[in-house]
Write a protein that binds this DNA or RNA. Structure first.
Lengths: 209, 209
DNA sequence: ACAAAAGTGTTGTCCGTACACCCATGT
DNA sequence: ACATGGGTGTACGGACAACACTTTTGT
């Protein structure tokens, strides 16, 4: 099982990579993964691995695709069930291991990856784009309170295009899942931004049928 | 690996089921499946199994989801990569085995299924509905030539709702992937229907991004 | 006063939906 | 002539896209 872990740092969409200590693909970067234990569901295995690597729990996690080309691992026939996870910017992520071996990389500026992990990351990005259209999943990348501009940046980062501010706000507010808080956020020498929060904390909803 | 095989028979959406000969779930119905061989890709394994069961090749096949709850198989920890396949009504399907043990069932009138196969079939149906909106996948369930009414029935069967004839035709024809043939199809005592065919034979296309 | 991002409405276009009648055929 | 499904066009409404100026703040 492998996981593509996304988060947003400094306005960039990042993926967590681990440098491999041993062969095959020694010293190359790879997404976190591992074997599923006998008593675990697939989801539990992914959650466990996610926690080991980032120390966070209760994160949005979704199964992606299963990759199983016979020679994807030179050692043996290994089939991997890929997942992706979204970590909100409110979470304090402290990679457990040595900082040299675990790092966040901008998703559009990745190093060469071990195995077929490049394909897995691309697949995760594609899924993320799809989900953005039919769910409110993007909110999972933010904290409990956020400005509408921050939310818009998340959409723009994932879709890789700029959006119109007025249209974006109209659409998001018309979904009726946000409420204004009485707080504002001051950043730089300009008008402070209104902070918003979920009406229902953190529920992921699908739209359309 | 397991496969949900769909086809349309007598205007009903059908799924191929096999009656289990041995335990566990002896005598219950199950979707076709089997173990992936060492040299095979996941897709090849599914294609092989599909051919063994139905004698057809070059069929639309897509990976679905991987199920791996620890106790889904009482014998051992077995993880299954589920797939679904669409068989066109032009294909002559001759189940290889004894007809008593391999049968088509209407998808909305299934018997109790072994393992978690009910979930897998539901998952396949859901995926089919999604794909119907964003691709021309439905055409895979028809032959090379078909009437627009036949195509509409496919959509209606999968979406479980009736569609407006005029709107449906407008939409399908505006996709520009069909062409009229010079043949018509006579069925019953009424005006014959125009037969259509693909411009590009059988390509599955995705729409939107 | 100015720089910088926050915030706010209107208009046109396109797509999906609703809806009713004539056509070609075999009996 | 009639029963049956094949085939066709128009009008409305909602969603999305394009577009520019005022507001609030710190310097």
């Amino acid at each position: 099982m492998d996981i593509v872990i996304f988060t947003i740092v400094n306005g960039n969409l990042k993926v967590l990579l681990i440098r491999r200590k041993g062969p095959p693909f020694q010293h190359m970067w790879a997404i976190p993964g591992g074997f599923i234990r006998i008593g675990e569901t697939l989801e539990e295995a992914a959650e466990r691995r996610l926690f080991e690597e980032t120390n966070v729990k209760d994160i949005y996690l979704e199964q992606l695709v299963t990759f199983g080309t016979p020679n994807r691992d030179p050692r043996a026939r290994i089939i991997t069930i890929s997942h992706y996870a979204l970590i909100g910017s409110n979470k304090d992520i402290q990679p457990n291991a040595n900082a040299e071996d675990v790092q966040w990389f901008s998703v559009h500026d990745l190093p060469d990856l071990a195995f077929d992990h490049k394909d897995i990351v691309e697949c995760a990005l594609l899924r993320l784009k799809e989900r953005l259209k039919t769910s409110n999943i993007a909110f999972q990348l933010l904290g409990h309170k956020f400005t509408l501009t921050e939310l818009q940046r998340v959409y723009e980062l994932i879709l890789e295009k700029t959006l119109d501010k007025r249209n974006f706000r109209k659409k998001i507010l018309s979904m009726g899942i946000l409420m204004e808080t009485d707080e504002t956020k001051m950043e730089g020498y300009h008008r402070p931004a209104q902070l918003y929060a979920f009406r229902e904390r953190g529920r992921v909803q699908e739209y359309e049928v």
